Simulated assay, not measured.
Amino acid sequence: MAGRNGRTVRDLRRGNRTVVLQRLYFDGPLSRFELGPATGLSSGSVSNVVAELIADGLVEEAGSVDSDGGRPRILLRVAPGSGHMIGVDVGETRVRIGLFDLTLTELARAERPLAQQRYEVEGIVRHVRDGIAEVLAASGIGPERLLGVGIGVPGIVEHTPRLGTLVHGQTIGWDAVPLEQLLRDGCELPDTVPYFIDNGARTLGQAEMWFGGGHGARSAVVVLFGSGVGACLVAPEAEHGRAVEWGHLTVRVRGRRC
């Protein structure tokens, strides 16, 4: 059944679960009493959502704190072992692969150096494939337990319905590289494991807003300096960040060197 705004009961339930998990993820541990004002939900809704999340193994109790004259309040947190994810950073000098639990505690890491900033597509795909296999083997975690693989890459990322994610990287010589399809063909992961591929400046900007210098701020600009210059603007109008890459622009052919 849908309401006037088109949202169904399932949508509302999913939204309530999401907001509770987000607050526990970024601000936890929190008690049920604290989750009310933090999420804007009623105490009854908080109790129902928390009960569901505990039953699903996504949330667990994490001790208690004294209350003002009443019974101690039970603290809640995201259950670390309820999910795992892999993060990949394709940088200027190396490809770094990390395996994390649901609280972003690093469980294993692998690095593959890039010789003289060489970005051959086959080499990058091989580094990612071998790194994923290495961190899974080191942790003993089966690939079917992965919630997803996130990859930050230099260049412009295009999401297409037919070929998946394409990467346009002028500075690294990539022209519409079907990176997602190449990884699916090369990595032995179940088809149910999603790939999240995005510009590296954008992923770093979001990470800074969640866990770094921008935590708690409404807006921020994160700038990266390397062989090129990248930036990410995070603002209420661009919640997940708008990545920008600066480069050289030829104004006059055979003109003065920059």
Rank of each mutant, 00 (worst) to 15 (best):
M1Y: 13
A2P: 04
G3L: 12
R4W: 01
N5M: 09
G6S: 09
D11W: 13
G15K: 03
N16I: 03
N16C: 05
R17C: 04
R17G: 04
R17K: 02
T18I: 04
V20W: 04
V20F: 02
L24W: 07
D27G: 00
D27E: 08
L30S: 09
F33R: 10
L35S: 10
G36P: 02
A38I: 02
T39L: 01
G40L: 11
S42D: 13
S42W: 10
S43E: 14
S43W: 12
S45I: 11
S45D: 15
S47N: 07
S47A: 15
N48Y: 14
V49F: 05
S64I: 06
S64A: 15
G70W: 05
R71Y: 13
R71T: 14
P72Q: 07
L75K: 11
L76V: 04
R77D: 10
R77W: 12
R77A: 15
A79L: 07
G81L: 08
G83K: 06
H84T: 04
I86S: 09
V88T: 14
D89K: 06
V90M: 14
G91M: 12
E92V: 13
R94G: 08
R94L: 09
R96N: 11
I97V: 15
G98E: 08
L99K: 09
L99V: 09
F100R: 08
D101C: 13
T103E: 11
T103S: 09
L107H: 01
L107I: 01
A108T: 11
R109K: 12
R112L: 11
P113T: 12
P113S: 07
L114Y: 13
L114D: 08
Q116I: 06
R118N: 11
V121M: 10
V121I: 14
I124D: 08
I124N: 09
R126G: 11
A133F: 13
L136P: 00
A137M: 06
A137V: 06
A138L: 09
A138I: 02
S139E: 02
L147T: 11
G148D: 12
G148A: 12
V149C: 03
G150P: 07
I151F: 08
V153P: 04
G155P: 00
G155L: 00
H159W: 04
T160G: 01
P161M: 07
L163R: 14
T165Q: 03
V167E: 00
V167R: 03
W174I: 06
W174A: 13
V177L: 03
V177F: 07
P178M: 03
L179D: 05
L182I: 13
L183W: 10
R184L: 08
G186F: 06
L189D: 06
P190L: 13
D191E: 15
P194I: 01
I197T: 01
I197L: 02
G200M: 13
A201W: 02
R202H: 05
R202T: 01
T203R: 03
M209A: 15
F211G: 06
G212Y: 01
G213M: 11
G214R: 01
G214D: 01
A217H: 15
A220G: 12
V223F: 03
S227E: 08
C232W: 02
L233E: 07
V234K: 10
A235D: 12
A243Q: 00
V244A: 02
E245M: 06
W246R: 12
G247T: 03
G247R: 04
T250W: 06
T250Q: 14
V251M: 07
R252Q: 11
R252D: 06
V253F: 13
R254D: 15
C258Y: 09
